[in-house]
Amino acid sequence: MMVETPTTAKGSHADAVATASVVALAFSINGRHCAVETVATAMLLDVIRDQLGLTGTKKGCDLGACGACTVLADGRRVKSCLALAASYDGADITTIEGIGTPDRLHPLQAAFIRHDALQCGYCTPGQILSGIALLAEKPKDIAAIREGMSGNLCRCGAYPNIVAAIAEVAGL
């Protein structure tokens, strides 16, 4: 009898990895051109973390439900754990490493620090990328920020401060 693995969600994906064909992809990552070869079934998150070494993007649930892996693709929020890398061939990808540096913080990064909008920090890169995309959508009030950020979980519960940081940058 076979082991009935209690989880089934990733079984077929894992099986596929072993036999998948290799594809050549080219992205712009944080403004730099970048060519990678990867298995056709590879997720954007794994390419970003494992092949490009950009570990600021986190794996939280691997199901597109927690938001820790959020990156921007052509300015729009994408949960990279569920995004097939091959679908983003030619895309302009922005990760947390492309947002700002300790010496030159993006206004939202500075606001996150000012408002103590983080605790363990694991969800923070995803929160910031999601927040930046939300700001571009011009939220009209606090309720729109709360709704617009509800796809990024923070288990430490820093939500009031996350909302305050985004609201400040939005001028609300």
Binding site: G53, L54, T55, G56, T57, K58, K59, T95, I96, E97, I99, G100, T101, P102, L105, Q109, A110, F112, I113, R114, D116, L118, Q119, G121, Y122, T124, P125, I128
Partner: peptide
């Protein structure tokens, strides 16, 4: 004071186990 790792957290520079080279 803000969390001592706050700058690392907002810039993606904080290393967790799976991030260690």
């Amino acid at each position: 004071l803000h969390h001592d790792s706050a700058v690392k957290h907002v810039t993606g520079g904080a290393l967790y186990v799976d991030d260690i080279a």
